[in-house]
Design a protein around this nucleic acid. Structure first.
Lengths: 322, 322
DNA sequence: AGACGGAAGTTATACGTAAAACCTGGTGAG
DNA sequence: CTCACCAGGTTTTACGTATAACTTCCGTCT
């Protein structure tokens, strides 16, 4: 009976009976039992997406993209926002309570991976075999079956060029205080680019990723004569916090202070002036991650190459004042 | 062997063998197969959370709350952001690809429910039996096994009192152009409260829920002498759009125009001045929803009563100018 | 005419778990 | 001394599906 719905009854069942079966199924409202099917097939067509948080639309975009291509391939995506944020996820599998074919981990710390690899997949009583794991926003040299990255280094370079072109030489890097590879890249790349230009100065302030946190963290650096002329933020939320701090200390943006972000979240255009920021295509990111995982599951080679990013120049950056 | 891990080997297995089994399990890295367990138990300890979108932290909060309670009871939560937004969800089950014990639908249109009820649960080949369904932000008279609501009517009342107390009489309601019960309540309640006060005026403008959309929708109403002194927005994002429109037409907030929102998202404090808004406790909302579903599954009566909300007065509202 | 082949339909089996049903050996009571 | 009982352990079964294996039936070719 299951043949009919499977669609592959080419030479097995007559067209007449096939129709009869389908009618009966519709009549009784028959739905196949997923648990039984998963058990029989030994695969669940379900993957787990581990993200550090859902407080920003970025990961919502990643999910959306991943879920879209998953759906096209008959896969479902289960979300696991790690309660520990970027740190090691305690036990996503037990929590997700789902039988899995693979895992995508977005922007998680490398050592979080150990906890991620398990045997909740198709594998029977036996042990040992590991789930395919795709890492997003992560060190390509690190663990994981495959890695997909945004070309964040290029994004930081675009920011640096833009600000240098406007005459800025005194920079503050408002860095996300989070142990993630992607933020290490941002710090390294910014420092490297500025080091190439004589007469530049770069200070760094760390902050948790939140508007309030950023406001508190950056305020001190904006007071006094030693203040920078440009603040490069790791993230739009940090930039929003910088706006608030600037307003507190009486600095106008962009006349007195240029500010840049990364992500291009909704908040980037909600604040005034609109934020110059690096647009990250979260959905494409999720799509690429899911495609990579599907490739691994098919035994194919995942697509190579970082995803390009683009600087969106808005009103928060201006030439440095004489 | 499964007895040991189940924890109920009180008088069945000696402590020695129990230990031996546990050691062997650890040795081999044994993990029970979820699919087989689900099949055997006839329940999956997995519920589906259907939300219209993830573009706002509100639903992230709902998810977080629901997942937290779920985890405490050994349940997992699978998320299904309906691609159609608030409208009827096409086939969440096929997409979620998970065997389910129940469904929570947040802020979905009532007629979306029909598609939500299915037979993908424990049920065997048979048909007919419906999954328990908890509706959030929905008409208590509508379908669904149980309903959990925020006391949004009270929130709107608090907004109205606050603005009336500041002397405002000329109102604009910036309404979410979305067919959801919760927004109908907001419109109805605001109109009802203002109707009680002689000399008040209420206009309504509809907008999709986005900053850009709101800016475009509200701009016309802010120009000319007939403009309102207070804009009551269904949502913080609409309020953020109102800020931008006001800036365009040269109105200062709150001196020339008072603005209120609902939700208390991060954007509410990112914009300047900070937004007076109604704080909704999304996490508590999710918790209550999950608890209601668990109660239904246990055959108990779900907790009654709406969740209280609270007006947070910030800088976007001021006495009307003489 | 007999046998072979292929299409249509039917039965059997395995997936891994949980739990019931079923053994076994030893001890205490009658 | 024998038997019932019980703790401790082993075998069996069922969950619902997908598919392999097997049976049946008929038409056709030699």
């Amino acid at each position: 009976m299951s043949l009919v719905l499977g669609g592959k009854w080419k030479g097995r069942v007559s067209a007449a009976t096939a129709e009869r079966v389908r009618a009966a199924a519709a009549e009784l409202g028959y739905r196949p039992n997923l648990a039984a099917r998963n058990l029989r097939l030994g695969r669940t067509r379900t993957v787990l997406l581990v993200v550090p948080a859902l407080t920003t639309e970025f990961f919502a975009g990643v999910y959306t993209g991943a879920a879209r291509v998953a759906a096209r391939h008959g896969f479902g995506v289960v979300l696991y926002p790690s309660p520990e944020g970027i740190g090691p996820a305690r036990d996503p599998f037990a929590s997700a309570q789902a039988a899995l074919d693979g895992v995508i981990a977005s922007s998680m710390a490398a050592d979080a991976v150990s906890a991620l690899r398990g045997d909740h997949g198709r594998g029977g009583g036996g042990g040992g075999d590991q789930l395919p794991l795709v890492m997003l926003d992560s060190d390509p040299e690190g663990p994981g079956t495959a890695t997909v990255n945004l070309d964040i280094a290029d994004g930081v370079r675009q920011v640096a060029e833009h600000l240098l072109g406007l005459g800025h030489r005194d920079f503050l890097h408002l860095a996300a205080d989070v142990p993630s590879w992607t933020f290490e890249v941002r710090a390294r790349e910014l420092a490297a680019r500025l080091a190439e230009v004589p007469g530049t100065r770069l200070r760094t302030v760390r902050s948790p990723i939140s508007i309030k946190g950023a406001e508190a963290a950056v305020r001190g650096a904006l007071e006094g004569a030693e203040r920078p002329t440009a603040v490069v933020c790791d993230d739009d939320q940090l930039a929003a916090g910088t706006y608030k701090a600037a307003r507190r200390v009486g600095l106008r943006i962009p006349e007195d202070l240029s500010v840049t972000g990364i992500d291009d979240l909704a908040v980037a255009t909600a604040i005034d002036p609109e934020l110059t920021t690096v647009r990250l295509d979260a959905e494409l990111f999720g799509e690429r991650g899911m495609r990579a995982l599907l490739a691994v599951l098919e035994g194919e080679e995942p697509e190579q190459g970082d995803i390009p990013v683009r600087l969106i120049v808005r009103g928060s950056t201006a030439p440095v004042r004489a």
